[in-house]
Amino acid sequence: MDANGVTVAFEGESDRGMVSRLVQELGIKVGISYCCDGQPNLFRRLPGFNCAASRSVWFVFTDLDAESCAPDLVSRVLPSPSNGMALRVAVRATEAWLLADREKMAEWLGVRLGLVPREPDSLDNPKLRLVDLARQSRHRSLQSQLVPSRNSGRPVGPGYTTEINLFAQKRWRPNVAALVSPSLDRAIRSMRKKLEDSGTELSN
């Protein structure tokens, strides 16, 4: 699928919009995408991804979650990465990268800019924070999509996946977000370098 785009793998459906926008930022598009249904499944399949990445470029995205530091995590789960492999860790979750475009996030959620965290990489649980922000949203219908009902037992609302993917694809600006999130900035640089090394043409 090289000719048709770069191969990507990520943890869950709600990462899909972010991943595709990020790849688009590099001037290419997504080829095959492996949605892994959670981090344990992604790690289980990582040796195979790494093997395939000896022949083509792979962007794999995971969350740091409660781990202490990203380099430790990477060296533990992927001791010898192939040439084409870029395993990128969002600190602490991909929602931090989305929150990092603060203006667009505030505009989308309908909250004051001051409420959107200035250092999203330092949040313990960015997803929870995003949903909390949505509770203060001026937009009732968006709020009902993002915020769970009292007895749902889930961290997010019924339309969370759809809405977060729409935000990522239509509004989010990775280059602006990278100024606020160091882990996103490192991810973009590393992905760009992988593409350059592999000789894939970049449009910008």
Partner: peptide
């Protein structure tokens, strides 16, 4: 083939 050897299931 590689993906299967590397831990993926056929459906995946």
């Amino acid at each position: 083939g590689w993906l299967l050897q590397g831990g993926s299931r056929v459906s995946e």
